[in-house]
Simulated scan of single mutants.
Amino acid sequence: MKSIWNVGRVTAALATILLLSGCVSGPNMPWLPAGAITTDMIVPGQVVPSGTGGPTGPGLRQGTASCKAVLFIAGWGDCSIQAAAAAGGITHIRTIDWRYENYLAPIFYRYTLIVTGD
């Protein structure tokens, strides 16, 4: 009887680990390689075409906007393109990147949108 309980406990523990392993990489970006204790990376977003003959590459200005989440229970912030552009005084967007941070996952997450332009 005791061995049946041990098998049940091991099975439950393995099932729990399997189910929670997907939570380590974040709720909205499951494809990111994330650490279980901390992650701090910048992920390329997109380059906005500037038209024919216009300047290419990052702009002279940079604006950021952040969103935060705690325990996948509460999330807040405005990490929209408009908020990041307004923070940097940008009217023509050239590049968009994401900075993804977590500390003691899944306790605290921060997503920061980084916009460059003129």
Rank of each mutant, 00 (worst) to 15 (best):
D118M: 10
S21K: 06
Q62C: 07
I81L: 15
A69C: 14
P106W: 02
L71G: 10
L19F: 13
H92G: 05
D97Q: 03
P27R: 15
W31Q: 13
T39P: 06
V70W: 12
I114R: 06
T52P: 07
S50V: 03
Y103N: 07
A74D: 07
H92F: 03
S80C: 13
L104N: 09
T39K: 11
P44D: 15
R110F: 13
T116G: 10
G51A: 08
W5T: 08
M29G: 09
V70Y: 15
A74M: 08
G88I: 06
V43C: 13
T112L: 05
R94H: 05
T11N: 05
A65M: 12
I96N: 01
T64E: 11
G59N: 05
D97W: 00
R94W: 03
A36K: 08
D40A: 08
F72W: 13
L32S: 05
A74Y: 14
T64N: 13
R94C: 00
A74P: 01
A12G: 08
L104K: 00
V24I: 15
G59H: 07
L104A: 12
L20W: 10
M29N: 15
M1K: 07
L18Q: 03
W98P: 00
S80D: 04
Y111K: 04
G51E: 13
L19K: 04
G35P: 00
I90K: 04
A87K: 13
